[in-house]
Structures are given as C-alpha cells and as structure tokens.
Amino acid sequence: MSDKNKPKKSGSLSRRDFLKSSAWAGLGTALSSRMLKAKSPAAVQSAQESSDRINIAVIGVGTQGRVLVESCLRIPDIHFQAICDIWEYSQVYASRYLQKYGYKVNIYEDYRQLLEKEKGLDAVIIATPDWMHAEHANACMEQGLHVYCEKEMSNSLEKAQSMVRTSRRTGKLLQIGHQRRSNPRYIHAIDRLIHEKQLLGRVSQSYAQWNRSKSDMLGWPKKYTIPPEKLEKYGYRSMTEFRNWRWFKKYGGGPIVDLGSHQIDLFSWVYGTNPSSVTSCGGTDYYDKREWYDNVMAIYEFKTVQGTCRALYQVQTTTKYGGFYEAFMGDNGTIVLSEVPQFGNWAMREAHAPEWDSLAKDGLLESETPPIQKVGTKNVFLDVRVT
C-alpha cells in the first residue's frame, strides 16, 4: 500500500501443507502471483516423481477454468491428471495447452466417468457454471477428494448448504474462490492495519464498485456447436444460454453475483459481522434478451460493537469508469484497495489523526512523501519562488 505495504512473496505449497491445513485456500493468491515461473516439461517430470505431488483434475475448462489451469502451472508439485468439459472446444483448447507443458491428460465429457475411472487423485478444481457447483463438488468430496470451487458457491442457498454439510461429513477441504480473502495485501490491510493497528479509527462507511464496459453476447465457432440433444442432456436450453449462462437465472446470479460477491464479502470482513439489512435497486435497463439485472446499486447496514455502519456497492455493465476497487473510510483515515494495485493501493490520513510515521518505520506502511533535500545554491530567493 502507499502509504502502502509491499506484497509478500507467496510460499510454495507441499502436499503435506495441503492435507494438514487449509493452506491451499491460498490458491487465489498463488494464482495471481507473477513471481512464480511456469513449469517446463522437465519440471513436470520432477513433479511427477515427487512424493509431495498433488494429483488434480479440472472439471470445467472454459474461460475461468483455463485461468486456473494456467496459474496452477506456477505452483510446485501440482500434477494435472485429467480434465472434463461437455464442450469439445474447451476440451481441445485445454488439453493442447497442457500438452505444451508436458501433461498428457485424460479427457472426459461426463464428470461421473472421470470420478469412476481416475485413480490416485487428491483434489479437483471445479470451474463449471454456478448451478452445477453443488452437484460436482458433492460428488468429488463423496469420492474422497478435496475441492477448490470457483465462486459463486451456488446460485441456490440450499445447494450451497449441501456443500458445507458434505465437507463436514467427509472431512474433505472445500475452498470457494474468494481470492481476496487469501491475498496478502488484503490480509495486511484489513487484519493488520484496520483491525489490529486501528489505523482508520472507527470505520463507519465503505464503498466498492465493479464497472465494466458494454459487451455483446458471446458467440462460438460454428463447427463446435453443441447438438440440441446434448445440450438438453446437460440441462441447457440453447447454445446461446450455454455460452452466456451468467445472464440467465437458471444457471447463475448475474453481475451482482459474478463481480459483487468478491467485494461485498469484504464489508463483513472489515465490520466483523454480516449485514442486518440491505436496500437496493437495479434493472435490465440496457440489454435485451438477458434475464439478470445489468446494473445494481445497494446499501448495506451493519450493526457493530462501535455502532451502525454502512456500505455502498454498485456494479455497472455499460461503463468501465473507475474500474473496480474498495474503499474503507474511518474517522482517522481511508484505505483504498484493488486486486489491481494501480486501481487501489493507498491510504489517506485525516489531519487530526494520530501520526503514522511509526508504522512506516516498522514497515507496515510505505510513505509516498519525498524527503526534503538540501541544495548547494545560495540563491535562496529563487529557490523559495520555485518551491
């Protein structure tokens, strides 16, 4: 942060770390790290021979699944064993990509066949549309496998609860991809500065937004069109809905879920409690043939030990103005954060607040104020005028 903390390097994970704790919950941090280099084929061979190897399969290798695949290549001792997707295009793309790094993975259309045939798996990454998360995650945990599941956990509270119950009953780890919870900058800012050091004083207001430019519905290469009978088999009404599932209520939760869930969660983290009420408005005001709201504004109210606090959130899909960031405003200062540091990585101190110099000396903040430099000239009058 600036006044800011420098991100710490992510440590490597071993299989023991993964199995003994929820350390693999830090996948979101590791995924975004540019400091870890992608594996070479030689490194893949070494990982295959390592006793700390984690054998994984990926169910859902579309856009987000491929992001996770690419990032896992940067994590030591992870070995890709199989992939699964109902769309041939994604199967081909992901398998060829992994082959470049020395992995010859088994390919499946139906996750049930994967679970039946693959032996020696330790964990599964699930990056399918939200409505299938519970079915896939529960089946994997019942099979004795740990699960990293993309958010949103589910588009149904009942299905989400079933995932928690299965995890508790089987003793298998279930991690949902809210990566800000495991981002070192967010942990430092919220746990260390806001909570422990009380840097901002009483945080009475918060604000967050995720704004995106307008976009058309996704298309697809015609030669990879899924036949209607196959779409129906897997629960999709059309190829358009399959490709744009996030906009339809059967499959997802719309932008407020896809984008907002990452940030709204931070309000509860900062305030230490869940909201007591919410007032919101929004609508399908811009796009045709989309079921979910294309814009939402919401005010959350929290009852904390320090009193009532509020948070304002907005998601827009027709303008990228301001991008995405979160701001936490207290009577002694404000912290602005974003997963992209250029959008938010700084703190502002109120004039009446206690000094922050000691925190900077301790390495908890980094000052952006340049030190005053003495000059050799005797032309003081000119120096003052220029200054």
Rank of each mutant, 00 (worst) to 15 (best):
I226G: 07
D288K: 15
P228R: 05
R243M: 14
R243G: 03
Y234L: 07
T240N: 12
E291R: 05
Y207V: 09
H188V: 00
E301W: 00
G219L: 04
M239N: 13
P255I: 06
D265A: 13
I299L: 09
L259W: 13
W292Y: 14
N211I: 03
R192S: 04
K230N: 07
R290F: 02
W247K: 01
R290E: 02
G260P: 07
L193W: 01
Y236A: 03
Q209F: 01
P227C: 08
F248P: 04
G235W: 05
Y287T: 11
R237N: 07
S213Y: 04
W220N: 03
W247G: 00
A298E: 15
G283R: 10
R212Q: 12
H188G: 02
W269R: 09
N274G: 06
Y287A: 10
K222G: 05
F267K: 07
N295S: 13
G283A: 09
E232Q: 09
P275V: 06
Y251E: 09
L218W: 08
F302Y: 15
R290W: 04
K249Q: 11
W210M: 11
Y251I: 08
L218S: 10
P275Y: 10
M239F: 08
G254E: 05
H262C: 06
T284R: 14
I256E: 14
T284F: 00
H262R: 07
W245F: 15
Q205M: 14
V270M: 10
Y287R: 08
P275L: 10
R212N: 12
Y224H: 15
N295I: 11
K249D: 11
Y207M: 06
K250E: 14
I256T: 14
G252E: 15
R290D: 01
D285A: 10
I226D: 07
F267E: 05
Y236D: 04
R237F: 00
I187G: 00
C281F: 13
W269I: 08
W210R: 10
E291S: 08
Y287M: 09
W210S: 14
T279Q: 15
K223I: 12
G282A: 04
G235R: 03
M239Y: 07
D258E: 15
F248R: 02
N211H: 15
M217L: 14
R243P: 02
S204C: 00
L193G: 00
A208P: 01
M217Y: 10
V296T: 14
Y236I: 03
S276V: 13
I187T: 06
R243Q: 15
W220I: 02
Y224D: 13
E232S: 11
H188D: 03
L199V: 00
L193S: 02
P221I: 07
W220V: 01
